[in-house]
Write a protein that binds this DNA or RNA. Structure first.
Length: 557
RNA sequence: GGGCCGUUAGCUCAGGUGGUAGAGCAUCUCCCUUUUAAGGAGAGGGUCGCUGGUUCGAGUCCAGCACGGCUCACCA
């Protein structure tokens, strides 16, 4: 009965609002209803008023209802386009006005409406495929009243298909002169503001789809990231590697020093860990004579989040039989130069305001680097023996700490529990790392820091391991693989002792891995390359979150 | 967890020394058949992050909290 007293418009509004209320729980909706409530209006007046005035979202639901009333499907299944926007632009961009007029090229195109400019009984708009835009000219006498009514109900963000012919406007812009419009999907929530775009960092990460719609450079970042991975696959495929996938859920998380995430398998009632590295599985494949394998996938580490750390990160890890770490140094340099060449077309990248050349590489042993980068202002410069005797290392550390305290730099721990190798490692990280802007390979690490690497033939205190630094970031980590099962077992045992002492990151005994080694593993070298950090370098991104589509965030409140 | 910065309309942002909130874009109505940050006329839209305090009066001052960013510490 009530309906008799309502105008048709009010009925539509009510229906639209019912739909809106059922499918929507946004702040704006709640706010507008609360606001209406507070004005003490009747239900119908409330609904009419709150829509009629302000609720942008309800406004759009209302338009969708009207579009349905015009006989359009709200969510049609497909659109039969003749060209992508990219095709139109690449094919016809150079056609003159006369050529276009002569040929009357008929097209059907589709995309998201990104700009609308009304003009009385005509209108200009742009549709986009995300990267490319094309202008549409819609005029009443060309599309007819029904289409033009639909045109009036469109919002920025809607998807449409347009049929028409190509022409050039007064300002010489290639444009589709519409003869028919097909509604494809509605954008019920308004897009970010057209001029300033989306700058709120949190929304950019949480609602990356908006970021991708609006910020062109963001799309570019992920294009580069994709190219990096593709080029890496090409590179390793050409070298005869095969790509494999190993377990992401492991009964024991090994292959790195890090704390894992824990999960549980219900049917088997067993705890599992998300992998911190694929290393031990990939080396089992080397035992199984896959000989050259690589895997590109996620690792998970239950640690802090920073501009350089996301809980899940992507790593390329590869193993090459019959080779040692020297081979991988060369391979790494070749790979990086090739990536730069193919993706950037040049060897120079700008990173964090500084110029990096991927053409000039340095190689230092860890100890050499310490001697080389020891600050001038903290004399005397250490000699090699200062790095090799425990007591002298302690003295050196104390000297560093005094210097560091005066210059607001990081200090290193000095106590009897720390081994010689750990002290060397700590000194390296604090003294040297911050200087490693240009590509630098640091090699020959203390054995204490590397439970899975092979010792150097002429120095059992060192292992054949190197790390690649670029832009002060650790980009890659590689070593000659330890393939002596008994030695590996002893290393695990000594790690187990560290675990007992409370080191949660110490490696656990992996008996099956030792068993695999006992069947015989050829000499081999392996390496992990951090894809996210490489992507940061190649896209001049200061935060790892800028190169991960959906970086880890706290739960939305 | 520590330090620094931030939170005002759907979006991007203004709001000396306390006096009850503003612009552009977006939205709505009207005009406009080659515009492009279209234009013109008009209208609506805000518990100024939350809680408490000082004050006659708080967007503004103070305290606490929440959320976010950057940064430092472990790690790749």
């Amino acid at each position: 009965m009530l309906f008799e007293f309502q105008t048709p418009r009010a009925v539509i509004i009510n229906e639209a609002l019912e739909v809106a209320r059922k499918s929507l729980s946004t702040e704006s909706w709640i706010v507008s209803v609360k606001r209406a409530n507070s004005r003490g209006m009747t239900r119908d007046a409330r609904l009419t008023e709150s829509t009629h005035d302000q609720d942008l979202v309800a406004q759009r639901y209302l338009k969708l209802e009207k579009i349905k009333e015009l006989g359009h499907s709200a969510y049609p299944h497909r659109y039969d386009f003749t060209h992508t926007l990219r095709q139109i632009l690449s094919r016809y961009q150079n056609y003159s006005r006369e050529q276009l007029d002569a040929e009357k090229i008929h097209v059907r195109i589709c995309g998201r409406l990104v700009a609308l400019r009304g003009h009385g009984k005509a209108g200009f708009s742009h549709i986009s495929d995300g990267d490319n835009r094309l202008q549409i000219y819609t005029r009443l006498d060309a599309v007819g009243p029904k289409n033009f009514e639909l045109y009036g109900l469109l919002d920025i963000g809607d998807f449409i298909g347009v049929e028409g012919f190509l022409f050039r406007t007064k300002t010489n812009e290639l444009t589709v002169h519409a003869s028919n419009i097909k509604f494809l999907a509605k954008s019920l929530l308004p897009l970010p503001e057209k001029w300033h775009g989306l700058t709120d960092v949190e929304i950019r990460y949480r609602q990356r789809y908006l970021d991708l719609m609006v910020n062109k450079d963001v799309r570019e970042v992920f294009m580069v990231r994709s190219k990096i991975i593709r080029e890496m696959r090409n590179f390793f495929d050409e070298l005869g590697y095969i790509e494999v996938e190993t377990p992401m859920m492991q009964p024991m998380a090994g292959g790195a020093t890090a704390r894992p995430f824990k999960t549980h398998h219900n049917a088997l009632d067993m705890d599992l860990y998300l992998r911190i590295a694929p290393e031990l599985y990939l080396k089992r494949l080397i035992v199984g004579q896959l000989e050259r394998v690589y895997e590109i996938n996620r690792n998970f580490r239950n640690e802090g989040i920073s501009t350089q750390h996301n809980p899940e990160f992507t790593m390329l890890e590869f193993y090459q039989s019959y080779s040692d770490y020297r081979d991988l140094m060369d391979l790494t340099e070749t790979l990086m130069k090739r990536l730069a060449e193919r993706i950037l077309g040049k060897m120079e990248v700008e990173f964090d305001g500084e110029k990096i050349s991927l053409a000039s590489w340095s190689r230092y042993s860890l100890k050499e680097a310490l001697l080389k980068y020891w600050p001038e202002e903290c004399p005397p410069r250490p000699e090699i023996k200062d790095l090799e005797e425990f007591a002298r290392l302690q003295q050196l550390s104390i000297r560093w700490n005094a210097y560091a305290a005066a210059h607001a730099l990081e200090t290193v721990p000095v106590n009897q529990d720390v081994s010689r190798g750990e002290m060397q490692g700590a000194l390296f990280e604090t003294v040297v790392e911050r200087f490693l802007l240009q590509p630098t390979l640091i090699y020959d690490y203390p054995i204490e820091l590397s439970p899975l690497s092979k010792t150097k033939a002429d120095d059992p205190a060192l292992v054949e391991r190197f790390e690649l630094y670029i832009g002060r970031m650790e980009i890659a980590n590689a070593y000659s693989e330890l393939n002596d099962p008994e030695e590996q077992k002893r290393r695990f045992e000594s790690q187990a002792a560290e675990w007992e002492k409370g080191d949660e990151e110490a490696h656990q005994m992996d008996s099956d891995y030792v068993r695999a080694l006992r069947y015989g593993m050829p000499p081999a070298a392996g390496e992990g390359i951090g894809i996210d950090r490489l992507a940061m370098l190649f896209t001049n991104s200061r935060s790892i979150r800028d190169v991960i589509l959906f970086p880890h965030m706290r739960p939305e409140k």
